[in-house]
Design a protein around this nucleic acid. Structure first.
Ligand SMILES: [Mn+2]
Ligand SMILES: [Mn+2]
Ligand SMILES: [Mn+2]
Ligand SMILES: [Mn+2]
Lengths: 218, 218
DNA sequence: TTCAATTTTTAAATGAATCTAAAATTATTA
DNA sequence: TAATAATTTTAGATTCATTTAAAAATTGAA
């Protein structure tokens, strides 16, 4: 059984791998965990001993098959709890992550099975991220950062790439939500920002950064 | 902020105090926690330093005012989660305690406020124990162990004193549940057992121990 | 009321998770 | 490619929760 710290580190390594980074470095991991490199280095050794990651000194880490499975189960729990908080307890989507960070460590297979049933087997968390099934399988339709699509493109807002608090608050403020219909009207060459229309109604300008963080369906 | 261990020890001291024991002893506490006396002794010193208990070397411990408040908040969370598990996730009443033992440590005032609302402000947990309100107030109607009431007495089953797994399973098996109407028909002098009728239907014999653990309303 | 049994505390160790500082290794750049 | 810079690991401490063993205090029985 993994400790709370082991679970959090393993999840971080998995998430960093997903973001393209292969051979996750000690410094990057420490930064993500809010700890120092020495601590991350110790943990890499420990997770490696448990064969949850492939790791060699100075070489960086990658999740192993069993590590990936473990990580996905933790992520499954995290996202199911986030759905619960929003759907049942009326949390705002920017209030759920911290609490889910705690709830994801509760040990009870029955609890997760029943929670999944209670929530009617949701496929997405409140930020549009897919919820792995009990075997760690993820099915996700193709989605694209708004900033990468040309003017004229129309799609639905299906997720945010990095669901940070401030970004979600900003989306609330400007009226962008999951499921909103969004048409790209123009791309400003000067700064890479986008002019968009939401639900055929409101026109908005989104910075390059915002556009990179909003994911659209085809 | 209290650590997980501190919370569990404090709660244990509170529960033991409630069971009549004044000046909770190191050994008794250790036994309840499944640890050794040395560990309990260390923890008593620590909780005393934080002024959550009144304690002097060799003198035993009693919860202080602030300690009682803390303990009742943890118990509030524990019991709200138990209600959630039974009412919403269809757990049996004998499956909830272990999971609630974990869930009670989740730190989020908003979560508990919303959970309480979601459950429609329950006053009792699935074993009939009262749920303290947000100020730590408990209101409970008088209740009596079945074994202490004479033949002829009629009342409702309102709680079990010590909701251990095996006892709850046993109650399920013989058809006793919270809210059942129960009439005491006879008391057997030989072994202190009781003959009872449930819901004016089924006649049963209950051991002295079982009778002491079933609480009836007036 | 004394002294032996019991209880409680303290001392010394261990393992987990963290830190700072120093050493080792790898990467960069002049 | 050799020195320097950056990264990573290791060494040595610290804090927390636990243990075993020994010492101290209390209790209670003769
Ligand atoms: Mn999250
Ligand atoms: Mn977490
Ligand atoms: Mn319980
Ligand atoms: Mn607990």
């Amino acid at each position: 059984m993994l400790s709370l710290s082991e679970e959090n580190y393993l999840k971080a390594i998995y998430h960093l791998s997903e973001q393209g980074k292969t051979n996750v470095s000690t410094n990057l991991l420490a930064e993500h965990m809010g700890t120092k490199a020495a601590s991350a280095s110790d943990m890499l050794k420990k997770l490696s001993q448990k064969e949850l990651i492939d790791y060699g000194r100075y070489q960086g880490a990658n999740v192993s098959e069993s590590g990936k499975k473990m990580a996905l189960q933790i992520i499954r729990k995290h996202r199911l709890w986030e759905v619960f908080l929003v759907e049942k307890l009326k949390f705002n989507w920017n209030e759920v992550h911290e609490v889910a960070e705690q709830l994801e460590h509760i040990k009870s297979p029955l609890l997760i099975k029943r929670l999944d049933e209670f929530l009617n087997f949701p496929k997405k968390d409140p930020h549009g991220s897919p919820i792995p099934d009990e075997h760690g399988e993820i099915k996700e339709k193709p989605q694209f950062p708004l900033a990468e699509k040309p003017p004229g493109f129309e799609g639905l807002v299906v997720a945010v790439k990095d669901p940070g608090n401030h970004f979600l608050e900003y989306l609330d403020k400007i009226g962008i939500y999951l499921g909103a219909k969004l048409k790209i009207v123009d791309r400003i060459t000067f700064d890479g920002s986008s002019e968009v229309i939401i639900d055929n109604k409101k026109t908005l300008f989104l910075s390059k950064e915002a556009g990179a963080n909003i994911l659209l369906s085809e």
